[in-house]
Design a protein around this nucleic acid. Structure first.
Lengths: 186, 186
DNA sequence: GTCTATACCAAGATAGAC
DNA sequence: GTCTATCTTGGTATAGAC
């Protein structure tokens, strides 16, 4: 978690640890002192302020950096997907992969649900990422796939709310059931 | 939002406004001063502390009170349901009703996702409520219904993340599609 | 049971040495 | 670019009058 002071640039390190802390503790619950400590600076020293004017000003770049990462992940995943194109993907495998993608977003989704309304501008950025993810499916052309992704998102988030698999339903059973309810998943 | 000082007991008013504020601003982001103001007391006066020993001690009762409310809502809804039992409910109507139930939980789900891990004891209470809601369906007996509820939860929460209907999918179209994918919804 | 006043401390932020 | 030291604000919590 905490990093050494020589990793990358301090600014980068601050952005990284700040995002993690915002997700973990919320924006209000995260102190600049803790950010400094985790970034390898001395906690309580104002070292942070050589890199950002205020804690508030940090929120946006931290989120945008994370969004950019997801963009890259998705592009790589899409590229990998294209490489094996032509081979039919079994439904269960496709669903499992999409669930994996969605879980990548978990920190971002939590932060949006908790603090999103206080930084309305970043919502657009998040929407952008989600739409990139959604490029693989369009509601008009493939409504069943979209329903599946929504169901996977529900399974993940509701399980997070309960702190255990939702209603105790095991993941593989859920995916099997979901697959059996679709007719034309590629 | 803010209430007059003569509504109900002060303790009750504090619990109500505190829950709202916790959902809105998070636990860390909510100040005792703001709770006092919204509850009709003078902000900054320690009036709050005649009713609770600390802000921390307030979190649990506030959530439990909200949970108790949902319990009542669900029981009433179940009772109403029984009154019209025998008449077959069209799938779309049932799905829409379940989505309405889920939306009742929205504040609780947000709070759990944001602050739940800091108050592990209350997770059990929340799980209890969700299981009451889930009594209408069991994964073993009616997996398709469970998948539908999960999908509805996903539609709601993902829309909250995006700040608009998920991927722009209109609610009624989503519900129609979901209904068409189920075979044996009662 | 609510107020005024206040003690206390944690957190945001700045100045200036190194 | 990071440190020590410090200023200032605002938030938790208490004491005591009414």
């Amino acid at each position: 978690m905490a990093v050494s002071a020589t990793d990358r640039s301090t600014r980068e390190r601050i952005l990284d640890v700040a995002f993690e802390l915002f997700v973990e503790l919320g924006f209000a619950g995260t102190t600049v002192t803790e950010i400094e400590k985790q970034a390898g600076l001395t906690g309580g020293s104002g070292g942070f302020y050589r890199h950002f004017r205020s804690k508030q000003e940090l929120l946006r770049p931290a989120i945008e950096r994370e969004v950019a990462r997801y963009m890259t992940s998705i592009e790589e995943a899409n590229a990998a997907q294209q490489a094996v194109e032509g081979l039919p993907t079994p439904r269960e495998v496709w669903l499992e992969r999409m669930l994996g993608y969605l879980r990548l977003f978990d920190p971002l989704m939590r932060l949006m649900l908790a603090d999103g309304h206080r930084v309305p501008e970043v919502r657009e950025a998040v929407t952008g990422v989600l739409q990139s993810l959604g490029e693989q499916m369009s509601w008009q052309e493939e409504p069943e796939l979209t329903v599946c992704v929504i169901a996977l998102g529900g399974y993940h988030l509701l399980s997070e709310v309960q702190g255990q698999p939702f209603q105790g339903v095991p993941q593989d059973e859920f995916i099997r059931m979901l697959a059996s309810m679709t007719s034309d998943v590629r």
